[in-house]
Design a protein around this nucleic acid. Structure first.
Lengths: 207, 207
DNA sequence: CAAAAAGCTGACCTTTTGGTTCGTTTTTTA
DNA sequence: TAAAAAACGAACCAAAAGGTCAGCTTTTTG
């Protein structure tokens, strides 16, 4: 079985189609509400074929979540000590806003999972996420102790940036309805980035 | 049929029990995933009795949503011209944070509904919500034009306050996990309110 | 107090759905 | 090129779930 064989290609194409269809279906219907049949239809495959690649619905969902977490991981940006507070916050906000506008579906899957109790993400949150926040909070604390930025609670600052940026992905429907528009436009990323950066930097006395 | 009759009391008690159980179930399982049987079990009633009070699952969900929207409406606080920008923002943040901590379930139901495309809230968003945001944005604009506050985009400012406050309700699981705690404590409301007020007011050059 | 109205519920029916099976076709391998 | 492996898909099955019904008990009403 060659690595570039025809069957391998078919496998990749089919599983991709399934995962894309599944992501849409899980967002729209939730885990229980999503049906394998509907995923199969949207992927253009018979149901039995979907279950040939993924043993069961649970497995499909896990695969979607994993894909989502990988994107989250890549898109989260980073907070580096050597950047100093101003640049670090700027970069962090920019990365998160870009991710929200470019991949709202990943953000939605993640949000639904957390809201519903994070049944499938307990471990991720308990280990990886907690670790990440603590590390970054420590960096902020360092800047504060050094007098490089105003004394604001680092954990809540991270939460503020997360929530305000992700909001544009998770609640895109509501925001677009309020603005009476059909879709986001390319300018919006820059505009929102500037808005949030401006307020939050000034909020931290970095501007 | 008296207004304070025994049967009327039974009706109120039963429908209340059903709606409370239903809210939990809808949050945990989503609309499709929630089962009437499970709602009935959690309400301590037989399924047929639940369907005696609410014709079908759709009706239960609508009742839950309506209750949620009423709470949203009561808890949203208000932004009054006569308060001036500083006090108005303070009051708004305080009201939203209190609502998030005191009624996270309402916030979650609402969030899930919006994320999933707001199928049942299209009208609410298109009319009531859009109207509300425009009105309040106009007030902010007035303050800006008057030189009472820094020129920040009013709509995005409202979104920022919404997102950052609601986050503590919708993502309570994640936040508590990160903080390695089991529950919020009474101090948290005040602490978060102060944190957000501090940053956002300064962000608007009001501090 | 008797008839009507409201509340209650076990049993039942129908549809949906996750998942299996088994035979067929396509691709790979030796 | 023939056997083995992978991909495919129609038909089927058992469990779950929404909803109905018919008869029962309790409460209200005149």
């Amino acid at each position: 079985m060659n690595k570039n064989s025809k069957s391998q290609k078919i496998r990749t194409i089919s599983t991709d189609k399934i995962l894309i269809a599944a992501q849409d279906e899980f967002i729209l219907q939730g885990y229980k509400g999503a049906t394998v049949q509907s995923i199969a239809d949207n992927a253009g495959l018979p149901k039995a074929n979907v279950l040939y690649y993924f043993k069961n619905k649970e497995n499909i969902y896990h695969a979607v979540l994993e894909k989502t977490l990988n994107m989250w991981d890549e898109g989260i940006g980073d907070i580096l000590l050597e950047d100093g507070p101003k640049l670090a916050i700027e970069k962090f906000i920019r990365a998160k806003v870009a991710m929200s506008f470019n991949n709202p579906k990943a953000s939605k899957i993640y949000a639904m999972e957390i809201i519903q109790g994070a049944q499938h993400l307990k471990d991720f949150a308990r280990t990886y996420l907690r670790q990440w926040v603590r590390e970054k909070a420590k960096i902020f604390q360092h800047w504060i102790d050094n007098g490089e930025m105003h004394a604001v609670d680092p954990v809540n600052l991270i939460l503020l940036i997360w929530s305000s940026t992700q909001h544009y992905a998770d609640f895109d429907n509501q925001i677009l309805t309020i603005m009476n528009r059909a879709d986001y436009e390319s300018d919006d990323i820059e505009h929102v980035t500037n808005f949030l950066t401006d307020i939050i930097l000034r909020g931290c006395k970095l501007k």
